[in-house]
Each structure stands twice: as C-alpha cells, then as structure tokens.
Design a protein around this nucleic acid. Sequence first.
DNA 1: AATTATACTGTATATTTTTACAGTATATAA
DNA 2: TTATATACTGTAAAAATATACAGTATAATT
Lengths: 205, 205
Amino acid sequence: MKELTKQQSKVLACVEVYLNKTGFPPTRAEICKELGFKSPNAAEMHLRALEKKGYITIQSGSSRGISVVRSQQSFEQSGDQIPVIGLVAAGSPTLAEENVEKRIPCDPNMFSDNFDYFLKVKGLSMIEAGIHEDDLVAIKKTSDVKNGDLVVVRLEDEVTLKYFKQTNHSLELIPANKDFSTIEIDLREQEAFIEGKSVGLIRTH
Amino acid sequence: MKELTKQQSKVLACVEVYLNKTGFPPTRAEICKELGFKSPNAAEMHLRALEKKGYITIQSGSSRGISVVRSQQSFEQSGDQIPVIGLVAAGSPTLAEENVEKRIPCDPNMFSDNFDYFLKVKGLSMIEAGIHEDDLVAIKKTSDVKNGDLVVVRLEDEVTLKYFKQTNHSLELIPANKDFSTIEIDLREQEAFIEGKSVGLIRTH
DNA sequence: AATTATACTGTATATTTTTACAGTATATAA
DNA sequence: TTATATACTGTAAAAATATACAGTATAATT
C-alpha cells in the first residue's frame, strides 16, 4: 500500500469521520468546508490521489460516490471481522491475507483496551495462566509493554507468547507451566521484537 | 417500532443492499430502477414513510442523504452491547437491569453458536478447565444440553456453572477442580433448572 | 536553473438529485 | 357512499454536485 501525504491522510480521515457520523460520504464542498479549503477542486485532487493509491473508489458521475476500501486506521475501529492469525513458529505474525486463518465478528473495543487481531495459541506453555491450546488471545500491536504483561515477542524467526520481564539488558520471557523454562535473552547479543501485548482472550466451547 | 408495509419493507431492503454494495445510499431514481418504479416520487413517498416510522433519517437537501437508523432484519446480528450477569449465589441469572453488571460491545455470533449474555465466574471450581475467577462465560439460553456440556444450572436459589452429566434420574454437576466434589442430584427429589450452556469464554488481561 | 510534485484558488458548466405539484387507481374503513 | 390510506405515473424546476479548465505558490529534485 502506497504511503499517503499529510493532506491526503487528512482528507481520508475526513471522509471516514463524515461517513461514521452521517452514514453517507461527503461531497467535495463539504470536505473543503471541514478542512478549510476554498476550492472544491482541492478536495477533488486529493480524492483522485486516494483513488489512485487504492484507499477509496470513486463512482464517476454519482454524487457522494465515495467508497472507502481501506481505512487508514484499518480494522481497529470498525467492529467487524477481526482476523485470527496462527501462532506459527516461523516468521512474524502479520496481517497478510495468507496468514489469516479466519475472521471473527466482534468489536475491537470489547476488552478494556482495543486490539488488532487474535493470535491462536499453540502448545501448553501458558496453561497455568488458564491459556489453552487453540485459545484466541486478543493482541494489541504496540511495543509499549510493562513487566508482567503477556506479550507476543519475535526472536529471529520464532514467535512466542509469554510473560514479559526486562531488567537492564536482560529480557526474560516467562512461561506459565512448570515443565517449561524461562527464555533469557541478553539484548546486547540478540534482538527481540515486541509485536504486541495481550488485552484479552476468547475461547469457543 | 411501527410496522412496515410490504413496499416500504422492500424499499428499506433496497437501501440496505445498495449501501452494503457501494458504501453509499441510493438516489430516488436508483431505488426506482431497482424496484421497477417509473417515477422518482414513488421512492420519495416510501422514504418519507420510512422516516416517519423511525427506520431511516433523511438529510433534507442532500443528495443520497439517507441514514439507516434501524435495520429491519435482525436486531440480533447488530453486534452491540451484550449484558454481563454476575454469578450470584442466590437467584436465577436474569437479564433484568439490576443484575446487569455492565455491557460489552461484541457480536453474539462471534462464537460457533450465538449467545445471550455473559456470566461472570465466581470461585475456582472450574479452574482445571482454564476457567478462572472473573472470566466471562458466554451463555446461550437453552435447555437442550448434552452430557459433557458446560452448563448453567439453578438448584433452588443457587446458580452454578459445571459440566453436565445425566443418567436416568440422576444428574451430576461436575467441577474441574480436584478440591471440589461433584454435586449429585436425584431429580425425583429435587428440581434442577437448566438455564443455558456455555458456548465460549472471554477474559480481559 | 529547470523540472516535478504537492497543494491549493477561482470559475464555470453539465449533470445529478431532490422535491414539489398534479394526477390515476385500488382496496379498506367509516 | 364517502373518505382515507396505499401505491403509484409524469413533469418540472430549483438546488446540489461533479468535474473540467486556467491559474498561483512553494518546496524538493535533478
């Protein structure tokens, strides 16, 4: 997906907010009014650019004929179909279509903090925390984590779900199963990517 | 909510389908084309009726200024605010307002089976099934349960969440914690109300 | 120094769209 | 029988809207 300029981003946000508020897209003139432009052509140009970059489609000749194809803040707010990503041993959990096992209709604000996707749990390393195989852990993409948080960490090509504990250069990834041992990493020697943290869990009975 | 005439219902469905397909509402002329009317006024009249009955709002003077307020089908799928009921020792879990601890925005179809409310778990009797205190168990109201299902049962004034097992006149309510013992009931002597069964679980981290 | 991309103003016009008004037809209720 | 509600056709005008064209200005590349 191509990057948006600041102004294009503003226009897209404006369209999304308007849609959210009224249920139908804005006209060029309304976008101008909202963003302070004085010519409808200003909005027109930005819309054309957004169309060219694949964020919206414009139905030519139709009033308000704007469809938002890809929201810029994406699925985070639209409360619809949240993707489920398999916790595979290799590679980072990305939202690329090929990694999406399925989608679940639910609201990303159902937990205290909103979240971006579900991670399907493999293995028993967190079972004493009541996290079973095939449970779906709701992950918020962030690198802002605290000690004690349940986090998704990528070490080289391996992705794991563990409790987080960091002291100076030492990172500990702590399981909740006495048969597993804590992973200790010296951050001066090895990189660790924090993909996100868990804000909740769901399980189908 | 007032009842719709057949034609009004058709027009509302047409608007919803169009919105779903294009992302913006139809014009009067487009509704006519879709439903075979020959005058834009036909659509206009139906829209005005729909507005008067509270199904849509029309922004006067705006093209395509239609907002669907209440979708005609399915208030069940609109994935909104699911009540959370505390698992209190006394009384049946009802959806009466005074028993609703809070509401969670989510879709009742997020699990394999749809459900009616969340029950907040008290105690540790199911901990070996990975069900912790304060977990929210999604309950579908039904008395159609099988052995092995996780069910909500009311015994006199006590409500409990346990595994279900019935043989003839004997009902066993089985915990998932070796420190708790199975509740055995002779149904000829004592009544047991099956309030529903669990179809899923959520937990906030 | 010239080119290109971004970001607009300002104007104009063809087209789309809303919306009012004048009718017709039919079934149901008073 | 006379209203009254539903369900349209047909027309037309005013208003809303998309969209093309002609410019201006500025910062970043080449």
